[in-house]
Amino acid sequence: MSVISQTKQRYDNLTIKQKEVYLGYALILPSVLLVAITLVYPLLYNFYLSFTEVPLTPAESPEWIGLENYMTLISDPDFLVALRNTFIFTLFSDIGATVIGLGVALLFTKEFFGRRLARGVVLLPYIAPLIASAFVWQWIWDPTYGVGQFFFADLLGLYDSGTDLRNSLTMVIVFESWRYFPFAFLLILARLQSIPDELYEAAKVDGASRWARFRDITLPELKYVIATVFLIRWIWNFNVFADVWLFTRDVPVLGVFVYQTGFNQFEQGIAAATSMIMLVFLMLFVAIYVTWVIEW
C-alpha cells in the first residue's frame, strides 16, 4: 500500500471528534506558518544577534560576545536620552490623542447641522498620508514663512518670532496627538452612542448636574474603550519610527535610535539589543496595564 492510501485509511478510522480536531489544525496551519516565518523566526534570530557582533559582510558569521552589547547600551548617553524621550513621547502623545478624541466625540453626541460632514472632516488627520502631514506641519511651523509662526508668534505673541519650534519633543507630541486623535474619537464615539438615553434621563430626574452626569454615567461607561485605546496607542507610540523621523531628525526616540545604530553605523548587534530592550519594556507595560488597569 502506498503512503497516501495508508494515511487515508488511518484518517478514515478516526472518530468524528478526532477528525474535527485534525481539520482544525489543518485550517490554522497556513497562518501558523506565516506567523512563524515572519514573526517568530525573526524574533528569535534578533534575540541571538543581540548577543553578537555582526560583521559587515554577510560572508562572515556573527561573533558571540555575550552581554557586551547590553553593557555598552546602559552606559551610552545617547541610548538613555532616546529611552527617556520614548517614555515622555509615548505617555504624552497617548494622553493627548485620547483626551482630544474624547472631547471631540462628546461634541458629536448632540445632533447639529452638518454633523455627518464634520465627522468626515475630523477623520482627515488620520486618513491623510503621513508624509504629507509631516511636510505640511514642517511648513506651518517654519520660522520664516510658516502660517503657525505668523499666527501664534507674530500676531498673538505667544512666543518669540523666529524661534524654530519644529525640532522639539513637545512639537512631536503635539503632531502625534493631532494625527491620532481621530482613532480615539471613532472608538469612543461608537461607545458613547450606545449608552442608553434613559440613564441620562434618570440622572436628570435625580437632579444630577451636567458634570455629575458625565462623571457618573459617561466616564464609567467609557472606561474600557478609553483604556483599550490608550493601550493600543501606547504600543504603537512606543515603537514609533516613521512619524518622528519624517517630522524631525532632532528628536531621537528608540525607534530612530535602532534605525541609526543598525543602518547608519551598522552596529547591528547593538541595534538588536536595543529592540530586545524595547520588547521587554513593552511586554512589562502591557502585563502591568492589563492586570491592574483594565483588570481583564
Binding site: 434613559e198 434621563e201 434618570a202 430626574v205 444630577a208 457618573d216 461607561e221
Partner: peptide
C-alpha cells in the same frame, strides 16, 4: 425635572451600571 420634584421609574430600570444598588438609590 429635578426642580419639579418628580421621581420616575423607567421601563428598562435605567439603573446606573457603575453603582451598586445602595448608591443607585442614594444618588437622587
Amino acid at each position: 425635572p429635578s426642580t419639579r420634584d418628580v421621581a420616575m421609574v423607567f421601563q428598562n430600570y435605567a439603573l446606573y451600571p457603575s453603582m451598586n444598588a445602595r448608591k443607585n438609590i442614594e444618588y437622587g
